[in-house]
C-alpha cells in the first residue's frame, strides 16, 4: 500500500475547510450554518491526522479525539440555542436575529 502524499491530504482538508467557510457565509439558515461549522472542524481534524501520519506520531489522532469531543459539546449547546431561538423568534434565519446591533 502506497502512502498517500501529505499534500493530497492537506489539499483535501483545505478544500473541505473552504467549503465549510463558504457555507457558513452564504447560508442564512442557522442549522446549515452549524453544519458548515462541523465541516470546518472536520477539515481541521483531517489536517491533524494527515500531519500525524506524516511524522508517524499519535498526537495527530489524539487531537482529533479532542476535536470530536469539543464538536459534540458545541453541537449540544448550539442546538439548544437554535431551539430557543426558534421558540422566541419563530424563525431560523440568522439575519432576522440581529438585536445585538450596536
Amino acid at each position: 500500500m502506497t502512502a498517500i502524499p501529505m499534500e493530497h491530504g492537506l489539499l483535501l482538508a483545505a478544500v473541505l475547510f473552504m467549503l465549510g467557510l463558504i457555507g457558513l457565509l452564504v447560508r442564512r439558515n442557522i442549522i446549515f450554518m452549524l453544519l458548515s461549522i462541523e465541516v470546518m472542524l472536520n477539515a481541521a481534524g483531517l489536517a491533524f491526522v494527515v500531519a500525524g501520519a506524516r511524522w508517524a506520531q499519535a498526537e495527530g489522532q489524539i487531537m482529533f479525539m479532542f476535536i470530536l469531543a469539543m464538536a459534540a459539546a458545541e453541537v449540544a449547546v448550539g442546538l439548544a440555542l437554535v431551539l430557543l431561538m426558534y421558540r422566541k423568534f419563530k424563525t431560523l434565519d440568522s439575519d432576522q436575529v440581529s438585536r445585538m446591533r450596536g
Binding site: R28, M33, S94, V97, M100, G102
Partner: peptide, 8 residues
C-alpha cells in the same frame, strides 16, 4: 457600524 448583529 461594524456591530451589525448579524452572525454571518
Amino acid at each position: 457600524q461594524t456591530q451589525t448583529g448579524r452572525v454571518r
